[in-house]
Every structure is written in C-alpha cells, then in structure tokens.
Amino acid sequence: MKLRKLQHRESLQEKLLSVRESPGVRETSSVQAHPAAIDNLVRGLVDLLPKPDGVWPLDDRAKWLCLAAGIFDLGYKVDDGEGRQIRIAVVKPEAPNA
C-alpha cells in the first residue's frame, strides 16, 4: 500500500497499540480513558491519505476504509443494539450477458 508517510509523528499503528495497551482501557472505552486518542487517530488516518489528484488503487482505498472503520469501532459505541458490522470490499462488476 503506497500512502504518504507520517513525518516526525507516531505511526498510526503505534497509536492504536498504545491506546489498546494503556492501563484502564480494558475497563472503560478508549475515548473515556484517553479523550484525545480518537482525535489523534483520525488525524493520523487523514494524514495517510494520498495527495489529491494522485493515483490511489482500489485495494489501498479499501484498506484505508477498513482502518477507518476499526478506529471508529475502537472509539465509539453502537447504539442500535444490533449485531451488525460494516464490510468494505472491492467488487468486480459482472460481465454483461451477450
């Protein structure tokens, strides 16, 4: 996956791991334990976006969107009470029947 690199900042993976491994995160949501953690993760996620008008392959877009969904799952609760999930996939259109 070719994405812009974070410079002079903690990598997004390091941020995710530090939030998950921090004391108290298991007992409370990460947002309560670290109020700025999700903001920083979202900023890091946005920093990973390629430059506008650049090439961004669909597989890489799907990976980025999956990472975004994971960050939102880490920081926010679902209020609808249903056991649903978000799926992101690259789908090849079917060839029209001739």
Rank of each mutant, 00 (worst) to 15 (best):
S30W: 07
L49R: 12
D59S: 14
A36N: 12
R26G: 08
K15Y: 00
V25T: 15
A37T: 01
S29D: 13
H34E: 07
D80R: 02
R26A: 13
S22M: 13
F72I: 08
G54W: 03
A33K: 15
L67P: 02
L17V: 13
V42E: 07
G70W: 02
G75D: 03
L67Y: 02
Y76Q: 02
I71R: 02
P23I: 03
L74M: 13
T28I: 09
L67V: 09
V31C: 11
D73C: 01
V25R: 09
C66A: 08
S22C: 11
L67D: 10
D39M: 06
G44P: 03
A69S: 10
D80G: 01
F72K: 03
S30R: 03
K63Y: 09
D73G: 05
L16H: 00
L58S: 08
L58E: 07
K51L: 13
V19N: 02
A37V: 02
A36H: 14
A68Q: 09
V78C: 06
V42K: 01
G54H: 08
T28E: 15
A36S: 13
A68E: 06
D79V: 08
G70N: 11
D60E: 13
T28V: 12
R43D: 11
K63M: 10
G44V: 04
A69C: 10
L58N: 04
L48Q: 10
K15D: 04
V78Q: 13
P23V: 05
Q32D: 15
V42T: 08
W64I: 07
L45F: 14
I71E: 00
L16D: 01
D39V: 09
V19I: 15
I38E: 00
A37W: 00
D80V: 03
I71C: 04
N40P: 04
S30A: 15
L74I: 07
L74K: 03
S22W: 12
P23G: 01
K51P: 04
L74E: 10
H34S: 11
R26Y: 10
P50N: 05
G54S: 15
I38H: 03
D53E: 08
A69P: 01
D73W: 01
W56Y: 15
A68M: 11
L49V: 03
A37F: 01
L16Q: 11
R61P: 03
